[in-house]
Write a protein that binds this DNA or RNA. Structure first.
Length: 103
DNA sequence: GCATTGACCCGTC
DNA sequence: TGACGGGCCAATG
């Protein structure tokens, strides 16, 4: 694995309980603000040992459809950490103004 | 080493 | 928390 993904995993592991971060935010912390998409790829492959549920897109939306875990599980995990998750249809949203992690 | 692939982002309408 | 289009860039085969 490249150095970028290693740093990305480390940054993701730093997200505190009760907060969320966006893909772009993590990418920026790794020095590549334009590589937000990579974060998704990393999580899709090796999310098992990371707080993957705390990483969402810039709209505050849970952006998975169905991978190892369903979006509904991610919503539940966030809810258990004290994060308010709103459901609209089959999609889930988090209030970024309230829960966005600010390093 | 080239082409394709994304759990995305941002400007614009 | 619209919808749409174009651009990004590391990882993968």
């Amino acid at each position: 694995m490249g150095n970028f993904s290693s740093r990305a995993k480390q940054k993701i592991s730093l997200i505190p309980k009760g907060k969320v971060a966006t893909y772009g935010q993590i990418a920026a912390l790794c020095g590549s603000p334009r590589s937000a998409r990579m974060i998704g790829q990393i999580l899709a492959r090796s999310a098992a040992d990371l707080p993957w549920q705390r990483v969402i897109n810039s709209a505050g939306r849970i952006s998975i459809v169905n991978f190892s875990y369903p979006a509904s599980m991610q919503a539940k995990l966030l809810d258990q950490e004290g994060i308010e998750v709103k459901q609209k249809g089959s999609e889930y949203f988090v209030d970024l103004g309230k829960y966005l992690w600010q390093p």
